[in-house]
């Protein structure tokens, strides 16, 4: 059973919600309510409200002031705690980029 155009739109919107990707959420919010679905559109808009703007996080602004070696070690050290690392990535919008 292949996906049709409306399935693709709803899937893109659903991925945007789950991944909290601001760019994709903006795209989803620009679609019509009919194409995305009322409930899903509500989720898109509420997620967009809190989705991180890449590069605008206070945590990031602080860490870029650290010496390069400290950033390098810090990025690696935080991975010892995967759930915290994932939370930081989501909160900073970095989870859609390479480290």
């Amino acid at each position: 059973m292949s996906l049709d155009a409306s399935d693709i739109i709803r899937l893109r919107a659903a991925i945007a919600v789950l991944s909290a990707n601001r760019h994709d959420l903006m795209w989803a919010s620009s679609q019509t309510v009919e194409s995305v679905g009322e409930e899903l559109m509500t989720e898109v808009l509420s997620t967009l409200e809190f989705a991180a703007v890449p590069g605008q996080s206070r945590l990031l602004r602080v860490t870029v002031r650290l010496p390069a070696w400290m950033q390098y070690m810090g990025q690696r050290a935080v991975l010892l705690f995967p759930r915290i690392a994932r939370r930081i990535l989501r909160a900073t919008g970095l989870h859609h980029q390479m480290y």
Partner: peptide, 25 residues
């Protein structure tokens, strides 16, 4: 957003439910 039951997946969010539904179909 998601709670799991012993069988696997019980989904609260509409986005998650939609994907699950398409996968099930």
């Amino acid at each position: 957003r998601v709670t799991t039951d012993p069988d696997g997946l019980e989904l609260d969010a509409q986005a998650a439910r939609l994907i699950r539904c398409m996968a099930d179909d």
